[in-house]
Design a protein around this nucleic acid. Structure first.
Lengths: 326, 326
DNA sequence: ATGAAAGCGCTAACAA
DNA sequence: TTGTTAGCGCTTTCAT
């Protein structure tokens, strides 16, 4: 593999000049620059990112840590991060943690060990340790889920989303509304459930815990919740699904029970990009995932460019698309 | 940031000993190892991956290059890659190219510049240039789509999948079967269409080009194909969808036309993980995406561990789940 | 505008 | 088993 020394020798200049041609800021005479370029092409020179990273103590790579790469919500977010980061000349490393603390810790370790420029993280749970990142002075932005009191973060208004979903069902005439959400350890899951409860109570209705199910944020969770809820002595007439995958599971299982909405009302928090039936009959609270990614990436870039303001939390709001009355 | 020198001084040993404790292979006496560990913990030492990569000319990172991170087929594959790679101590960097050659080239550049150990790639199209990787001696494994005549590759049997999907529809009694597939520039799209054609011709049926649509491998492509096919003077009575997203689009649009299967037959090449209606009425040719990822990763690891056998192509087969007769 | 030289933090001979 | 030492390829003063 050719190095700047090889290129320098062939071009008849010093290694420093070759370096200057590639870093671009320091002026180099046109003639020498041209000679360097020709020599580099001839030797198929590719500058060593690792050497540069070692020397400069930083690389143009940012880590994006997410709990579930198979969830379209997070991939949509990843697209947002990518677009903004790539435009600014950064590469994005996607790290999938499966919501597993050990895996997450391993990836954060890699991030500091590889001297990545910064980290955007949708944390597995509240226990994530950002200590090493902080000590090494790497900026971190939390997305989707907050992590520490005073840090940069972009989150959804989850309570509002939960309330809006519930209210849309109430407005459509449903009265016995259940809620299926994610694990109680996950902030977003709790907040969405709180929104459901608040909306019901605002209308003077009870929010019995028998109608609230903490589950996993996965398709299977939605499916089994339907079975459990329908088996109850006082089954609900509508269900709020706490995220997109739960929504898919709920709709799947309901269809198998012959209860396609609006026979039983359904509101989903999050989009259903791969739904195979018309979702007109389903209330959807669209969450701007891509926007969240873009905004988070921009916050991180600002920090990398020396922004020293106190940390801030940005809250994004969902958009309600009520079920069409038929 | 603490270095091995700081740790060495505090532990009262040489830097080399610290290094040996971390690399693990060379024996170190228990006492010194313990001292090193304590010193490292006290100084919150994190070894510099960049320094190590520079020194050893390689890093424990592999790049996974895919054309569409929002397609569950590729994320499922990514999971397979991740599992195998992580178990072997490698991190996986996910690079999303959007099927864009320039983006792809940029990522491959990063891969060699960062001295990544190897690359697994589902190429944007046949024009991808692997030259730089080869020159730098980095192993490459193609997945989903081949790229060069003699290279390691794991692909699906796409012709067979296309034929199986078509035959299932024929067996179910449909006779005017259309096919919607991806861009003609994409190998998998062509092969699946060829399978469709071959299956029809084997039964002595025509495969008129009016019933074959090259589109994009996206939801929207399936939707518009339905409209175009239904508007024809001699509309089909069944449709083969060339990938999962096309299948989603086809099913969506058919439902909007009031033509839910089996009113119009549908076979999908690929899985429908987020379908919201029961897919019993749809023929699905499940493609083992996760398996493809695991196998590709294993092939790459073998190369990294010195496997010098001639390159090989492994072909994986889909599994037909015919629509349930109702 | 250009070159010489030091050093980023680590590993791998080699010596002891 | 342990320490000494010489780089890996680059950037960056400091001179010129």
């Amino acid at each position: 593999m050719a190095t700047i020394y090889d290129v320098a020798k062939l071009a008849g200049v010093s290694p420093a000049t070759v370096s200057r041609v590639y870093s671009g800021v320091v002026p180099v005479s046109a003639g020498k620059a041209e000679a360097v370029r020709r020599a580099a092409a001839e030797l198929r020179f590719t500058p060593s990112g690792t050497a540069r990273a070692l020397r400069t103590q930083s690389s143009e790579v940012i880590a994006l840590v997410i709990p579930d790469i198979e969830n379209p919500y997070f991939t949509e977010m990843a697209r947002g991060v990518e677009d903004v980061a790539n435009d600014a000349g950064y590469s994005v490393v996607l790290c999938n943690t499966d919501g597993d603390r050990a895996k997450e810790a391993a990836y954060l370790d890699v991030a500091v060990s590889a001297r990545m420029a910064g980290v955007i993280i949708a944390a597995a749970d509240a226990g994530t340790d950002l200590g090493a990142l902080h000590e090494h002075g790497r900026p971190v932005v939390a997305v989707d889920r907050t992590l520490e009191a005073a840090m940069d973060a972009v989150v959804m208004d989850n309570r509002e989303a939960g309330a809006a979903a519930t209210e849309a069902l109430l407005d459509a005439g449903y009265g016995r509304i259940a809620c299926v959400t994610g694990p109680e350890t996950v902030e977003t899951a709790r907040q969405r459930a709180e929104g459901w409860r608040a909306a019901l109570e605002r209308r003077g209705l009870a929010a019995p815990s028998a109608r609230l199910r903490y589950s996993t944020f996965r398709v299977e969770g939605g499916r089994s919740a339907v079975d459990e809820l329908l088996a109850a002595s006082d089954p609900p007439d509508a269900i709020v699904a706490g995220n997109n995958l739960l929504g898919v599971g709920v709709l799947q299982r309901l269809a198998e029970h012959g209860l396609t909405p609006p026979a039983l009302g359904v509101a989903v928090i999050g989009s259903l990009p791969y739904a195979t039936l018309p979702v007109d009959a389903v209330t959807v609270v669209r969450l701007p995932a891509r926007d969240m990614g873009e905004t988070g990436a921009q916050m991180l870039l600002d920090r990398l460019h020396g922004d020293g303001r106190p940390p801030r939390t940005l809250t994004l709001h969902g958009v309600v698309r009520p079920a069409q009355p038929r």
